[in-house]
Design a protein around this nucleic acid. Structure first.
Lengths: 345, 345
DNA sequence: CATTAGGTTGTAATCGATTGCAATTTAGGC
DNA sequence: GCCTAAATTGCAATCGATTACAACCTAATG
């Protein structure tokens, strides 16, 4: 187990100083061509590799960024991360992953943990709906020296940039589409509306209704977790109503899938008896056999890339007059069979 | 933009030395109770946080591990990563993600890049089937000071531990199951057999055939990429044969899905006319409406956890007599409708 | 009262690389 | 042959924390 070679080893071997070796390796300074060549050759031959830790300590830049997500094993988040990684790696950055599992207390812990390892920035999707009230978080914001960027699940906090999708538009388009299909009694599977994303989808839904002269009915809105089982539960509730709805706009693909299962098993047809629209364009929505699911694509890869770009701008921006950016991507409704009464292949 | 407080700041404020402060913060050494208390209080009040970079440089441990995968936005790999992260975070480690996109040249680049940032270990799933012939990789192995652990796609390399699933058994069980369903002419959608995982699935398939007195037919084995389109293409080839098979064992869920689509669209029924088994237990295999897909679960979460555990053992093992571990998880056949002729809900 | 042991704290080197400033060498001009 | 300026290279501090060793102080003991 040999030790790694350092610039001191090279210097010793050549009867030079570490300073000279360092300069020779970094090309820029005035070093004679001879020594430069000599150093470069020796470095190669001794398998020298720069220790980025030492560099990071000296320069104050670790070239690491932290990414915090509720979980990584969902297509949406792993796609965002993929986008971030692809954008940042060519610039010399590495991506450190943290999961919160939606546990609010873990979120601050992970932020602090990332700051401790001196990340140059943090990109995160919020798990804690009350994040802005957290003491630790506020401290972080106030002594802001590390760029923080929200994606998807954000909070409106002064000085914090964000990259999101236009959830209002997504909700609006989805609902409008259902109305165009002839649906008049449209239910909505919402989620914790303390999160902007869910609230905005809800608001888009509501606006589309009113724009089309349909009265909003509170009883048709059900708060649902983003999973199959909760989607079933919600659908059951709706089907058991005196006047069941003729369509469901779900803020989650997983809940939409659960709803579809429950509806079908209750003997109803989709889309004839009930149209369904999901949200996120999860891979399985395309893979359904009979009832491919209409959904809203959020372009997570682009979201990751954009978030990374915002980070790069902020980290390159040394002035204190940092401009906060709130980038909003445009979602796209993808119409499939679950909501399309005149669907044909 | 305040600077971070260091132990020197604390020392200065208290008229002490950084050494004393350091010791006080690290509890263990002989420091008078008074100073210890004083230091702790001042540290809290000044918002002191240990700079892990400095610590890493001093101790030679970065508490970062690198994970290299072909891509992160697939359920299998993101689940493995989830397992790794969950296992290592409580031990103080952070996980750095790298993707290779199956580009062979990128693999070595990423390894070197991770070594440069002084990761304490690398966990990887191989993209390059010829990795062991690569010069850079060999160098890495020879001056081994950073634990390297393979998961899923491994190579048999002396001194390198691995965590894999028993692909042979997976292939064997899948094929045996098809035989038990009455199938006699079983095709296999293979993949690049330079990778152990695909070769072992193939060998398991072959063994199950011979154990049951079925002759192996080379023409029923088709090399297929792990995606839907290629699965369709392969199924087309099989359907166009003079004597088409009565079952398909695919080494990929995605290819299995493509095959199912092609088969159904050609007017055949599954499982009556053709049984299909996939591999990986991707989420969508469970979500299919008519034909949920029989598949083999590889327990990626466990794989990640185990790989992380092996890393922890190796990194804690200072002796040079490091024992190489080759952990093999047992896969589980999950029978669903696509292969089960007497299926009932 | 002097010696000594034990308890505390300081000194300085270390990890590996960078960089302002000083020192040295070299070349060129007269 | 001498002086000056330019070209190279060395010196030493720095980033923040740890730690072996030395130094100091205090109090107890003979």
């Amino acid at each position: 187990m040999k030790k790694k070679t350092t610039i001191y080893d090279i210097a010793a071997k050549l009867g030079l100083t570490a300073a000279t070796v360092s300069r020779a390796l970094n090309n820029n300074v005035k070093i004679s061509l001879n020594t430069r060549k000599l150093v470069l050759e020796t470095a190669l031959e001794m398998n020298y590799e720069q220790n980025k830790l030492a560099l990071a300590l000296k320069s104050g830049k670790s070239y690491n960024v932290g990414v915090i997500v509720p979980r990584i094993d969902s297509n949406f988040f792993s796609s965002v991360i993929r986008g971030i990684e692809e954008e940042l790696y060519p610039k010399g950055y590495h991506v450190i992953i943290c999961q919160t599992h939606n546990q609010e207390n873990l979120e601050i812990e992970k932020i602090n943990s990332l700051l401790n390892v001196q990340v140059d920035g943090i990109l995160m999707s919020i798990s804690n709906a009350n994040l802005e009230n957290d003491k630790g978080f506020n401290k972080l914001i106030r002594n802001k020296r590390t760029p923080l960027i929200f994606f998807d699940r954000k909070k409106n906090i002064k000085g914090v940039s964000s990259v999101t999708v236009d959830d209002f538009k997504g909700g609006y388009e989805a609902t409008k589409h259902l109305i165009e299909q002839g649906c008049r009694r449209i239910a909505h599977l919402s989620n914790d509306r303390k999160f902007e994303i869910f609230n905005n989808r809800f608001l888009g839904y509501k606006k589309a209704l009113s724009d089309n002269g349909i009265e909003f009915d509170e009883s048709l809105v059900i708060e649902t977790q983003s999973n199959v089982l909760d989607g079933r539960r919600a659908a059951r509730l709706l089907l058991d109503m005196e006047t069941p709805p003729d369509a469901i706009f779900s803020s989650s693909d997983f809940a939409a899938l659960g709803a579809i299962q429950e509806i079908k098993e209750s003997g109803f047809n989709i889309p004839e008896d009930m149209c369904v629209v999901g949200f996120s364009n999860e891979p399985f929505t395309r893979f359904m056999e009979l009832t491919t699911i209409t959904t809203v694509d959020q372009f997570p890869l682009d979201m990751g890339r954009k978030a990374a770009q915002v980070f790069l701008e902020e980290v390159g921006n040394t002035e204190d007059t940092k401009t906060t950016q709130n980038i909003v991507l445009t979602p796209e409704l993808i119409v499939r069979r679950s909501s399309s009464k005149k669907w044909k292949d």
